[in-house]
Amino acid sequence: MKIALAQISPILQDVRKNINRHLKLAEKAKKERADLIVFPELSLTGYTLQDLVPEAAINPNKDDSFDAFRLISKEISIVLGFVEEKGKGSFYNSAAFISGGEVLHIHRKVFLPTYGMFDEAKFFSQGKDISAFQTPFGKTGLLICYDFLNYGANYVLFSQGADIIIALSAAPGRGINENDAFASSHMWELMGETVSRFSTAFVIYCNRVGFEDGKSFAGGSFIYSPEGTAICRASYIDEDFLIEELDLSLLRKARQKLMYKRDNKPEVILKNLYRAVFKNED
């Protein structure tokens, strides 16, 4: 399969302009014969919304904003980030997988960072589900930013048989040292390498760039193979657009060598997790 990573800088709260940008880039990816284009977290709205969350929200079932995506998804699948309104007045930091003319799956961010420079739980409801789902490219799981830094969330997708883990991100860079990237970029790459190898799955990480209220989103989007090797990496801090061919047969090859999937024992993990949760064995 061919995949496009759209490492963009969305316009804060201007959903209309962002939709147009998405469609243009999807067209571009389509011309390059890509099967799937991935955008960053909250790619339709920008990140630092605060009190603007309700104004930027979309209900994909009722809102016509998604019609254009449904239409183009007959030719190229799209993963994007948006503010989802569920019912009336519940807002989620969500990601949608749109393919074959329909919204195949919506993931609602479970882990909302609320510390230091982050205040997501102040403005968003917390998602409760982590599920892998069937796509034309194999079983796929979506995670959003801080979700991906939780190894439990990745383990759930692994145990559900995910072949592809897609992480949408709006990660601000932090920490400067002698390297030519933010210290935090290294952390994401470390997780990408680890999760891909120990899940024997592709990991596709699409981060955004640009500044919002002084925060510099760090870019550095990447793809890791099911054996944990880096396939590509986008520019740090600048906009970028990568097209990459993924050889899905690598999944089978990796799993003949690395037995983590075969030897996984989710029932043992579950039993012991149950004890940790319900018997207060912290």
């Binding site: 316009i11 804060l12 709260q13 201007d14 920008g46 630092t48 919304l49 605060q50 009190d51 603007l52 500044f211 919002e212 209220d213 002084g214």
Partner: peptide, 10 residues
């Protein structure tokens, strides 16, 4: 609690 981004619409 009037929390708006500096870069609103930018």
């Amino acid at each position: 609690d009037f929390l708006l981004p500096y870069d609103w619409g930018k």
